[in-house]
């Protein structure tokens, strides 16, 4: 039994289903991300938890107490919005103190300055939102949500409006603060890198359902479906025909476990880093061969694009940049595919 429980949540907007029976359970102090493309229902799920939307069916409970019918302002949930949620007529400190004021709690000034320090903005207490950068505004928004000591913290794409650099810094900071406070957190994002980086577990959503819910490593290494594989991380998709215990790609047989009937068209999904590459000359001898068409330098790794001999499909292969010099454009190479996933085309 989790601390935050979502059971059988369903919701549709004007006949369009946004959530088709969502079950999710968060342990106390855990950070779970809901990851998916726009329209997959992740934001709807978050807003139902917050109490801004009412589910058509299903329930939400926190710490064993059913809060399904409780209005948003009685739920004690801290929410950080995408952007521009700070009250523009109040300073950073006043924004943070707002929830405390509503609760008439004492020591507001001390608590406010503690929170400002927690998010590293002690020196900006008197600034108005329009005088702060986007990243600073989101830090204040986080402090404001934490000020009321919520039972659950809800983050609705809080980083999506920020620059790449700020995004990474703030994402790490959110994780640090969340861990140190042991705050049960539901984090909604469409950015897979973000989700993998900060979460205890990642839930990948598609069309109102959870496709997979597991630790970042498992979601990345052992995707439960083709959708998850393709949404999380970079993948190659190569077309082929299923055989017993393998797949035929062009004239070449690739060993792979799968449950597709022999003879059907399939897609072979494989990550660029799971492909071995070696220089090759002469006959193919049953190996997957081709020639290098482009190289793109990505920093530590270089992505080598190879056009397969025969049917001309392109496959991207990641190599440490130090080794990429061995495969200049035009080089004939042989590829070795491992950890492939085979699905019906």
């Amino acid at each position: 039994m989790g601390y935050l429980e979502l059971r059988g949540l369903r919701k549709s907007f004007g006949g369009q289903p946004a959530l088709a029976g969502l079950d999710l359970s968060l342990a106390e102090g855990e950070l779970v991300s809901l990851l998916g493309p726009s329209g997959c229902g992740k934001t709807t799920a978050l807003r139902i938890v917050a109490g801004f939307e009412t589910a058509d069916a299903g329930s939400v409970s926190v710490g064993g107490r059913d809060v399904t019918g409780v209005p948003a302002n009685k739920r004690d949930m801290g929410m950080v919005f995408q952007a521009y949620s700070l009250f523009p007529n109040m300073t950073a400190a006043q924004n943070i103190a707002f929830g405390l004021r509503l609760r008439r709690s004492g020591n507001r000034a001390r608590r406010t300055s503690e929170l400002l320090d927690l998010v590293g903005l002690g020196h900006l207490a008197g600034r108005y939102p329009h005088q702060m950068s986007g990243g600073q505004q989101q830090r204040v928004a986080l402090a404001r949500a934490l000020a009321i000591e919520p039972r659950v913290l809800l983050l609705d794409e809080p980083l999506s409006a920020l620059d790449a650099k700020v995004r990474v810094a703030l994402r790490d900071e959110i994780r640090r603060i969340q861990t140190s406070l042991g705050m049960t957190t539901l984090f909604v994002t469409h950015d897979q890198e973000e989700a993998l980086a900060v979460s205890d577990r990642v839930g990948v959503m598609s069309q109102g359902r959870l496709e997979q819910l597991d630790t970042p490593a498992v979601v990345y290494r052992n995707p439960a479906s083709a959708f998850v594989a393709q949404f999380v991380g970079v993948t190659n998709t190569v077309h082929g025909v299923a055989e017993d215990g393998g797949v035929r790609v062009g004239a070449v047989r690739v060993e792979a476990e799968h449950e597709v009937d022999a003879g059907s068209d399939v897609k072979v999904i494989v990550r660029p880093e799971d492909i071995g590459i070696a220089q090759h000359s002469g006959q193919a001898n049953g190996a997957l061969v081709g020639s290098v068409v482009t190289q793109s330098f990505l920093g530590a790794v270089t992505r080598v694009s190879v056009r397969l001999a025969g049917d001309g499909q392109e496959v991207r292969v990641d190599q440490p940049s130090s080794r990429a010099g061995d495969f200049p454009v035009g080089t004939a190479v042989a590829l070795d595919l491992s950890r492939v996933m085979v699905v019906e085309a």
Binding site: N73, G78, M79, L86, F87, G99, R144
Partner: peptide
């Protein structure tokens, strides 16, 4: 007036009047 402001007040425990 952004809807987030209203929702932020809600999630902080405020009412329509607040």
């Amino acid at each position: 007036l952004r809807p987030q402001w209203r929702e932020a007040v809600d999630s902080l425990g405020g009412s329509a009047w607040t």
